[in-house]
Design a protein around this nucleic acid. Structure first.
Length: 366
DNA sequence: TCGCCCTCCTC
DNA sequence: CCATGTGAGGGCGA
């Protein structure tokens, strides 16, 4: 049976949550910002509402620049409150998850779902279901959302992006090639600036051109994995299923230092909260890690990482700090630059120190 | 196959 | 000094 996959995207999420909480903001440009703490207004815009976007203020713009562009427009400049958005997100996801066959949260504001069985593969019926999901979210949380339906995850994702905010785009299996074909390749998930540049050099601009590109040429430029993904995505034939309850494979935290430095002790001191937070994630999820990485964003904004893999999984804070210090020293030894931002990441997560150390002694495979 | 590092994406 | 923060995955050399 042909699948019916949906992608749900909560519109301009952080800024919209702020509007719901304070409706008087709806008539004003709203920018939700990440303040780095370096200077009064250093940091970037995380999310902006559509009034702000109309004035050229989008994600990633420095706060100072955003304020300049919004001068005289009575903007609301709001500090990001991640915990608050997580709570709203969790309620929405819980609600929607119970009304579909399968549900996979992929971010704080987005999720895939599968309604093949409950719609009996009928796209008209699926559209009704999708509209009901949108209505439910609007009535319970006051949030508008954009939904796309299609035969695969890639099609659903592109469809949800096609009309927003408050959009509902249905791409039937028969219309898939027509829908995708005319789009520029940048609209495909996984195709960013680098990939676009390479494709341009291959004279591939639209998804239709990508679908007919020479597979071996693609493989030369992008490798086996990415090239086969690109072809499947362009044809709307990717088969990835909707997988509920995906476990995270890594936790990371990164902080901007008060000032650039090569002093590892000073850097580590400012990482204390990040380390504690990672610790909390490990404990909260009952996981241990085998690989610890430090990430350094240097004074020229280049990024370096150093990592170390343990023989046995661990989760203790002292070990994290000691190893992080060593890695940080190694990282700095490989450059003349100073640290601007430092981060820490744990990966190769296993289900708990005890169980995983035992399983290390068991035969691998099935 | 593993360890390490980099690229990319989204907000 | 304008330039945040989280996560997934792939390439490559040993």
């Amino acid at each position: 049976m042909v699948r019916v996959i949906g992608h749900l995207d909560l519109d301009y999420f952080y800024a919209q949550v702020e509007e719901v909480q304070n409706p008087s903001l709806k008539t004003r440009p709203v920018v939700v910002c990440v303040f780095s703490g370096r200077t009064e207004d250093s940091g970037v815009v995380s999310t902006s509402n559509y009034q702000a976007r109309a004035l050229g203020v989008r994600s990633g713009l420095p706060i100072v620049t955003a304020k300049r562009r919004l001068e005289g427009h009575n903007p609301a400049v709001i500090r990001m409150d991640h915990g608050k958005y997580e709570e709203v997100s969790a309620r929405v996801m819980e609600l929607v998850g119970g009304k579909v066959d399968a549900f996979e949260k992929t971010g704080i504001d987005e999720a895939f779902f599968d309604v093949t069985a409950m719609s009996k593969g009928d796209y008209q019926a699926s559209m009704q279901i999708a509209q009901e999901l949108k209505d439910t979210i609007l009535h319970s949380e006051g949030l508008t959302s954009s939904v796309g339906l299609g035969r695969s995850k890639v099609v659903a994702k592109v469809a949800s992006d096609f009309a927003k905010p408050d959009g509902l785009t249905v791409v039937t299996p028969e219309s898939t090639l027509d829908f995708l074909g005319v789009l520029p390749v940048t609209k495909l998930y996984g195709v960013g600036p680098k990939t676009t540049t390479i494709l341009e050099e291959m004279k591939v601009r639209t998804v239709a051109e990508l679908a007919q590109a020479d597979p071996s040429a693609l493989e030369r430029h992008f490798g086996r994995r990415l090239s086969s993904y690109l072809l499947a995505a362009a044809r709307g034939t990717d088969e990835d299923p909707v997988v509920p309850n995906q476990e995270p494979t890594q936790f990371s935290r990164i902080v901007t230092l008060r000032r650039d430095t090569r002093d590892t002790t000073e850097a580590l001191g400012q990482m204390a909260e990040a380390v504690a937070s990672i610790q909390g994630k490990l404990i909260g999820s009952g996981k241990s890690y085998k690989t610890l990485s430090v990430i350094g964003v240097l004074s020229d904004l280049s990024v370096k990482t150093k990592s170390r893999t343990l023989e046995l999984p661990a989760r203790d804070a002292a070990g994290v700090r000691d190893d992080a210090l060593v890695l940080l020293e190694g990282l700095l030894a490989a450059t003349d630059k100073s640290l601007r931002r430092v981060g820490i990441r744990v990966s190769e997560l296993t289900d708990s120190a005890d169980q995983s150390s035992l399983s290390d002694f068991l035969p691998s495979g099935q």
